[in-house]
Structure formats: structure tokens, C-alpha cells
Design a protein around this nucleic acid. Sequence first.
RNA 1: CGGGAUGUAGCACAAUUUGGUAGUGCACUUGCUUUGGGAGCAAGGGGUCGCAGGUUCAAAUCCUGUCAUCCCGACCA
Length: 563
Amino acid sequence: MKLKNSYFYTIRENVKDEDSNSGNLLVRAGMVKKSSSGVYMYMPLGLKILQNIQNIIREEMNRTDAQEVLMPSLIPEEVYEASGRRKGFGNSMFSLRDRFNKPFVLGPTHEELFAVAAGMKIRSYKDLPFNIYQFQNKFRDEPRPRFGLIRVREFIMKDAYSFDADEQGLHESYMKMFNAYKASFDRMHIKYTIVKADTGIMGGLLSEEFQALSPIGEDTLVICDNCHYSCNLEIAKCPEKGETQNEAYQQIQAIHTPHVGTIADVADYLQLPHDQFVKTLIYMIDDQPVACLVRGNRDVNEVKLQKLFKATKIELADLATVEKVTNAKVGFAGPVGITIPVIMDNEIRGMRNFIVGANKTDYHFINTNLHDFTPTKIADIRLIQENDVCSECGHPIHFEKGIEIGNTFKLGTKYSKAMNLAYLDQNNQLQDVWMGSYGIGPGRCMAALAEQSYDEKGLIWPLDIAPFKVCIVVININDELQLKTGNSLYDSLNKMGIETILDDRDERAGVKFNDMDLIGIPIRITIGKALADQQVEIKERQSAETVKIPLANCLAYIQQLIG
RNA sequence: CGGGAUGUAGCACAAUUUGGUAGUGCACUUGCUUUGGGAGCAAGGGGUCGCAGGUUCAAAUCCUGUCAUCCCGACCA
């Protein structure tokens, strides 16, 4: 690309409506532009980056013999009714009606249509296995889009779906995809980690997430360096046994705690540490009130609760419900004498003489013990914390923040059952097809790379991702020799298959240097004063050094840098 | 969906409190000078002040409504 007479622009200052470094840099580099909240235009440079990412993924998909297809975005709502997922998506689906008032949605994910597509082929066990995939726009009406390309409402997703005869086959197909994902992200040079995760609305047997490490990541990852246990916070198992207290049992006793409802306030008032309290939270689980007990310094993990109850809806009870079930103002709930089911966290089993709400306004019980109430269930229902130890090996765990760039699911037979996707086995018996689904967000990969690699000058792209690998800055375009040399290098590099920018704009040197730094081109060739000595200067984006080399060696030098 | 804030030129902002000719910096055009890390001087172009009502002799400014964007939270494959 020759910049003179090209659609190329940069912005000197940060823009107001981008909250992340990656978002601001991508906008300033003229790569993307926000169209509306969570919806972006891709400009030439941004599109090239996106395509480079997509090409890597496509190559790795094709290497597994997966085949590319393209599904529509506009889908009759009944397709999601059929699989039972319309409700689960709720208003995070964009929905619309055609001229005959028939309801449609813009697809947020495509298991259903792929099941239909697979049904065109599958009759017998001989038709399995296979894998089909697409790059296609997905629509999700996120309540709060943010962080540039990271949480958006319209985005391209590479989604792949595998179809197998049995669980063993699914496992093999899954591992092929899993390895292709690793290969793809390795080639992109993203720093990432893989964690187990909740299957959520997708359902199924197993979910693993590929998480790009970044402080702005919205997912918390729980990592054990000792045994390599790693999972999303939402499903992280807590240690089976908490600490066991050995002090003598004391007699439960109500005490007056006027106007202090929160753990922090009561702890202050009684001058006792938070971990000597047991917190009672009233949840509505599928619209039934349930009291959940966790230690005072812990939090309830709603995903665990949801799984424990196999519930579809979990939310904290509203204030009126809390007051009704506890017969007290909010802040004084406790397990003793309460009439709704009581779910107690494992950790509380080791506690003695703890403090709970008394179900009476302005009163707490001290010296409460397990014999003072009867939990309905005892289970692991708390969020793990950073000072906890690994449930597998006992080594301390730590947290990381991650951006979910890919997700692989073993779906099992959930969708094939819902969509009547079956095959005849060797014994002429109908069997459900085993499905897997696999997603990558190329736009998120782009944003994650930008978050992981930039400096005060701008973006720094890996060679395989950069929109152009080399830029040639002609310092003085009025110097005919400089301009001619630049053009000649430009032609040669392009002939060598090395995508190159020629900055032949009538700008000052500083403007050109800054623009090329901002957009993050890995290698810069400067043609200026040194040309008088038949030399050009080479500077790599991520290095501070500039090297002078003879013009005659330039192409060979670049070739070697690119490798 | 709750709480908060902001909408003025391509970008970043001032003027709004106290109603009276719409401004500054960057970007853009022209000229001269300059020319290796975002040049200087001069002269210009560009605005239905988010939108719709209302109050007023007069509204960017006051009032009502509405839309959009952003932040915090809730939510989220």
C-alpha cells in the first residue's frame, strides 16, 4: 500500500468513547471505528489484521479436515424454540419480525442450524464422523458492551461443530479441535491459558476456555502452579476440609446488636474477625426461597448453587422476601429456627462457636454450633479465594484475569435429541449423534493481542498478524533518488511476497515515524540522508536500535528478519 | 434494569452557573519559511450547539420530554 492516495488515517489524540487501551489504539490507528455501542466498522488495516487471524484459524481447521460452510444470520425464532433455548437466551437475542409478522432472530450461536445441516448427510454410522465450520457474524444484545472489540454486540465468530457416533468418537474429534486451537493461538503469539469452565446455556459434558491473559480480562482464572489445575472462578472447587477449630463448645446465646446488619458492621461492633461469622443469604432458586450459609469472609458461588439444584434461575431474594422468611429486617437472617431449606457450605463444618443472625431484628446469636440447627444440604457453594489451596493437591492457588478468546464444548447428545439428529447403527438401531461445538472470536484475538502488546508509541503486532510486515519511510519525497529508491524497494518486497507500506506522503519525518509506530508495523526501512552513502536504516518496532545497512543488502536483510 | 455523568466543527474541549453576533487547540485549504521523531507565521473553509416541544423580544444557555454515548453495579457462551 502506498500511503499517498490511499484510504489511510490516524488520530493523534485518544477518543472519548473508548475505555480500553486496545480500543483507543485500534481507533487511533484507523483500524476500527465504533458505529454504535458494541458495533464496529473494520477499516483496511484492521480488516487485514482480522483476515490474518482468520487465515491462521482457517488453515488449522482445514488441517483437521473440517469443511467450511456459511449459515445465515437471520433465523426463524422457532429454530431456537425447538431446541428449548429461546428462553435461556432471553433478551440477549436480537429479535425482529418480517412483513408477515413472523418472528425472526439474529443468530447468537448456531448449534441448531448446524444440527439441521448435519441431518442432510447423516443416515448411518458410516456417515460419521465429520466436522463443519464457518466464519460468521454473531449477534448478542449484551447489556453492557465494553473494552473496544472485547465485548461487542455484533462480531465474527469461527464456530465449528463435530458429529460422532459415540462418546469415544466425540472425544477424538474434540481433541483434534482442541489441538488445532492450541496451534492457532500459538501461531498468533497470544499469551493464553486453558481453563475448565461452566457449560452454561450451551449445556453438555465439558467446557474448556482459551483465555488470553490480560488485567482487563473479565474472567477470573484459578490456577495451581503445582498440579496445573486450572479453571474459571465460577466452577473452582474449594478445598474439601476447611480449618478445624478445637475450642470447647459453648452455649448459644442471643445478643443485642442494634442497627448493625452487615458482617462488617457487626464484626466492628463485637470486635470480632469476619471469619468467626456465618453469613446467611436468602436466594430465590427457581422462585423458591433458600437460605445459603457461607463463612463471613466468603462469597456464594451462584454457578455452584445452580448446579446443586439443577436450577434454571438463581437470584438473590428481594428485601420483602427476606423480611418475610426471616421475620426480621434485612441483616439479621440466620439458620436457627428458619423454616426454609438451609444449604450450608462445607467449610462451616469445621467451625465452632460462630455468630449468625437471630432472625429477629437487632439480634444475633453468638456461640452457635452445628447442633443448633439442621442444614438441608451441606455442599461446596462458596467462591474460592486467593488465599485458598488447590482442591487437588493442597498447594496455594492464585488468580489471573483472562479474555475468553476460544471455547470448546463436548455437547453430548443434547442438541441431537432436541433436533432429532440420529443415525442407524450396525444393528439397525436409531442412535443419537454426539456433538461438539468449538468457537473462536477473531476480533477478540485482535483486541487481546493489542492489550498484550503496545507501548507509549502505539501497537506492536507479531509478524504473522501485522497488516503489513514492512514499512518504507521516504524522508524527503522531493528528493528524487530517495523516492525512486523507496518505490523500487517497495516493488521488490511485494514481488517477494512481503506485504509492504510505502510512506510517500508529503509529511515531516516525525509524523511518518509516529504513524508507523502507532499502527505497529514490525519492520521499518528509512530512506534518508544515509542514502548518499548507499545505505538505508532498519528499525524493528519492538527494539530501540536502528541499524544502517548497505542498500544492496537490504532485501536479503529483510528476508532474513522475516525468516 | 438500577445509580451517575456527558452530548457544541473530523478529534479533544471552552462558553451554560448569570439568556444577548458560537469559540480555542489539533486536523483541513492556500501562501511563505522550515525539513530525520507529531514545524512556524499569515490568511481561510467547516456548526441547523443530539432531537422535539415549551418559556422569552431573544435559547447552546431556562423548563419538559426524548434519543444517544460513557462510567459504576446487576447481567453475560
